[in-house]
Amino acid sequence: MSAQAVIDPAELDEVLARHPQGQPAGLVNLLHDLQAAFRYLPEQALERAAEHLGLSSAEVYGVATFYEGFHLKPRGEHICTVCMGTACHVRGAARLLEQAERDLAVRAGQTTPDLRFTLEQVNCVGACALGPLVILDGKYHGSMAPDRLSRLLGKLSDKKGSK
């Protein structure tokens, strides 16, 4: 079964209903709400968003791919975000990213084939005093070191055991 097929049409309708029809200015906010509902932006949701706001598919796709905050592919159950802001960079963030890439066997921006983990990088979340910083499923982990990150990722992947 393809990942595209699993979105709930009622939920899609519900999100769209919160946004006024025919107002293209609301596109970025609508995309945020769609992503909050589905964890990524499924093709079907983008098509419906276009219809709802009176835009073309091309316009919506152009916008969705322009902004780094939008994801057009399904994301993993766990999201590991390595902050690559300047403060984190000078405190060794690149090594954290490399460690996570080795541990998860994906590159930044990719999701593991079993959809357990997505590895992302972000250009500063404004928590520079904590640098280098890794955000695991929304929780901030400051003063991170490669070996500690490995242990944290290991703990998460053991939790339910790999399928």
């Binding site: 073309s56 598919s57 091309a58 316009e59 796709y61 152009g62 791919t65 322009f66």
Partner: peptide, 14 residues
């Protein structure tokens, strides 16, 4: 493409 009313092509990514 947009001017002709088709809007098929997009500038993608950044």
């Amino acid at each position: 493409c947009a001017h002709l009313g088709h809007h098929a092509l997009a500038a993608v990514g950044r």
